[in-house]
Structures are given as structure tokens and as C-alpha cells.
Write a protein that binds this DNA or RNA. Structure first.
Ligand SMILES: [Mn+2]
Ligand SMILES: [Mn+2]
Ligand SMILES: [Mn+2]
Ligand SMILES: [Mn+2]
Lengths: 219, 219
DNA sequence: ATTTATTTTTAGATTTACCTAAATATATGA
DNA sequence: TCATATATTTAGGTAAATCTAAAAATAAAT
């Protein structure tokens, strides 16, 4: 698999919700910042190679083979992110771009050894689950912070938006994964929330609340 | 710089003895397993970009810019080799191929952090010096084992041939870098040597002796 | 100094991953 | 339903890095 093929497969996986539904050509094009015609070309190649199912004008979705390929790349990407953050001291907003390169290194042994070296982590620095060697994905019961009610409590376990700006915003307000969060008040007007985090009170907008994953804890 | 350009620069550096003298087209072609005509094409590009000095039919040699580029790539290659061997437990005959891929990852921050994580190593697993951030190369006084006389002693600090077969041979006979070696006897007929290593006596052929670097120690 | 052999370059193709512009299919909405 | 808007594909092209075959330059050998 070429680097380009890998990037397409990964993109189709993410856009198609883990290979569940089909993905329109234009969505892939805008994600990869290429022209739709380039996507059509590549889709044909991936289809010939049986990574995707494709019917003209009907979008693509990943085959079993394609899903496995995607999971392998995502596994590598996320393990490298853990390495960069845990071992090299990168901030969580810096790991993604470098991991985009490292994910294409071809060596099964390297990934297995890296996995062991990192102590078989289950989640990456953004709280996303790391697929196992055979593609197993940890599934957690988690909800968006925005869906909680006053007095609900939980642990912050992931970010939905992992853009640099959002991650830097969280840093600025001292919100990190693992933090215990309790909803103190919900403002009906703008759906903003007052939360208790790290024993301090914080008022956050709806926008923020819809991008933080919480694992609820029984009071 | 593209990956291909980097590979050419690195090859020219090695074949031209650290950029000292010029390198014939065919040498580059056979090293990179490409056709001489492909080399000519690339050389023209590298010349346009001022990485090499080139006169038709006269071979190429690296410019100052080219030497710096080469040292950067070699620095990355060797740091990754140290990482693979020291941190991930790769054997020294397995690190090179993976490092060939890792050396092309583009992130200055990554390399600086990796360097620090590894505790600023001066040599790679084969005893080759690791260029510093500004291209400084440690120079040691070292000679080939084959050049020593009976009763001379030294520390084994590097391999000249770092092919998988030679490294595996050394493993088999328990020869590793850092070992103290003393010449017991030199056979004039076939230039083989009897050496004391690790308190055991070993008889080695000329071929072996010309591929081990020794740092002599005063008796 | 010629001839012959070797090395290197040129000329012209090929493959991959892109692109633009035009054609065509699908979706939307009056 | 039929016209219009949008999405997608086709057709034809480009740049990078390769290749083969042929031409030209250099080196080696008589
Ligand atoms: Mn990422
Ligand atoms: Mn991530
Ligand atoms: Mn190496
Ligand atoms: Mn090495």
C-alpha cells in the first residue's frame, strides 16, 4: 500500500463512521484537500484492489479488507501519538502532525515493540481508543458533556474536536483528560454550563460542552 | 527535499567519503539500484538546487549545503538506530532497515526530543558517530583490528561492514562493541589472528580483522 | 595514435498521484 | 414533472522518479 492509498483508506474510515456507511466523493476530496476527480481516480484503484466497494455516483465504503487496513494505520498513528506525548514530552496539540508521518512507517515488529515499550496503552493522548493487533477496539460508555444534567458527575475521558485551537483552549483553562467534572448549573438560554473541575468552578459555552467526552460516574 | 533527493544526497556523501571527493554516476546507480540514466536526471536536479557540484562526465561532489543536508539525514538515521536498539530492544542487525524509513520523517522538534530522550548518544549501535545538531562529528583515533601487532590491546568500538551477515557472525562468536581485545598471535600465512576477547581465545580470519575498528589502549 | 571498451548522457516512455475543464448523472424545488 | 443546481465522472495533461535503447564522451589497450 502506498502512502497515498493509506491516507485515502484512513479518511474513508473516519468519514464513513468506522466503515459503517458510504462516503461521498466530495467529502473525501475536501478532507484530503484534493480535487474530486483525483478522488475518483484513487477510488477506482482502491476498488480494483478490493479495499472498498464502489458503485459509480454512489460513493464508497470500506470492505472488510479495507477496515482492517484502516485499523492498522490508526493503531500506528495513535501508538506514535502516545510515544510522542508520554516519552518525548510533546504537548497533546503537537502530536498529530508528526504521527501523520510516522503512521506510514512499515514494520510490524516496530509497532509491536513500540506497543510493548509503551505498556500496551488503550487510549491515545486525545482519549481515542487504540486498536489492538487484531483490530479490536475498546468500546466505552461515554457521553458528551453537553448531554449531562445539573448534579451529574463524570470523568473527562476524551475530546471530540482535537484541533490545536481547542486543545490549547483546554490547556489554558486547565482541563485535561482524567479530570473529575460535576455539573453545577445549566443555563437554558445559551445552553452554557457551570461546572466544577479540579475544585474550581468554570463557566463553559455549549460549543465546549459538545466537544468533551465524559464517562459518567454514579454519585 | 523529497525522500528520493535525500537518499541520493546521503549516498553521495557515503560514496564520496564525507563529501571529500567526487562520485561517479555508476557508483550511485549501483548503490541505489537504479539505472545510470536515472542518476543523471537526479544529479541535474540536485545541481540546480545547489546541493552538488556537477560537470558532465566528471561525477558529482557535495556542496557545503549538500554536506549539511547529508549530515542531518545521517544524524536522524543514527539516532533512530539507537532508539530501536536501546529502547525497543532491536538487535543491531535489525535497526538499519527501519531507520532507512524513519530518517525521512520531517520534524526538527522530534529529533531534538529524541536526542534528549536517548541522552545525547555519541555513537550508533554500529559504533558510527552521530552528527550533532550543527553537523559536528566526533573524530576518534581508531584502527582496524588487522593493523595491530601481537601484544597490542584495544577496545572494539565499531564495525566497518555492518551487513546483517557480519553482525550475526559477531553475535554468534560473542563479539560486541566495548569488548577488550588483545592480539595473542598473528599468522603470517593467511593473516589470521588469534585474539583474547572476554577472557576467551578466538581465532579469526583476515576478513573479520579488517572489519572491526579498535581503539588502541596502552598496555 | 587508433581502436575498443566503458561510462555517461540524451531521447523518449511509463507509472503514480495529482490537476483543469467538460460531460454526465443525480438531487432539488418550482 | 421538468428545469436547475449540485455531485461525480471522464478526458486529457503535468511533474516526479523511474525505465530502455541509442548516442556521445571518456578511458583503456593495443
Ligand atoms: Mn491524531
Ligand atoms: Mn489522536
Ligand atoms: Mn544504518
Ligand atoms: Mn549505523
Amino acid at each position: 500500500m502506498t502512502r497515498s492509498e493509506e491516507n485515502y483508506i484512513k479518511t474513508i474510515y473516519h468519514l464513513g463512521d468506522a466503515g459503517m456507511h458510504s462516503v461521498p466523493t466530495n467529502a473525501i476530496a475536501s478532507q484530503l484537500k484534493t480535487q474530486p476527480s483525483s478522488v475518483t481516480d484513487m477510488i477506482k484503484k482502491l476498488s480494483d484492489k478490493k479495499y472498498v466497494h464502489y458503485k459509480k455516483y454512489r460513493g464508497v465504503y470500506l470492505s472488510e479488507k479495507g477496515i482492517n487496513a484502516a485499523l492498522t494505520i490508526i493503531r500506528k498513528h495513535r501508538l506514535w501519538e502516545v510515544f510522542l506525548a508520554e516519552k518525548l514530552g510533546f504537548n497533546w496539540d503537537e502530536v498529530h502532525d508528526v504521527a501523520e508521518q510516522l503512521e506510514h512507517i512499515k514494520s510490524e515488529k516496530l509497532i509491536d515493540k513500540l506497543d510493548a515499550f509503551l505498556n500496551f496503552p488503550k487510549y491515545d493522548p486525545h482519549g481515542d481508543p487504540i486498536p489492538g493487533k487484531n483490530g479490536e477496539l475498546a468500546q466505552r460508555s461515554l457521553q458528551l458533556l453537553s448531554s449531562l444534567q445539573p448534579n451529574d458527575e463524570g470523568i473527562c475521558v476524551g475530546v471530540k474536536d482535537s484541533s490545536v485551537t481547542f486543545l490549547k483552549f483546554l490547556d489554558k483553562h486547565n482541563i485535561s483528560l482524567g479530570d473529575h467534572i460535576k455539573i453545577l448549573d445549566a443555563e437554558e438560554f445559551d445552553e452554557s454550563l457551570t461546572i466544577q473541575i479540579d475544585n474550581k468552578n468554570l463557566h463553559i459555552s455549549k460549543r465546549i460542552a459538545t466537544n468533551l467526552f465524559i464517562k459518567p460516574v454514579r454519585e
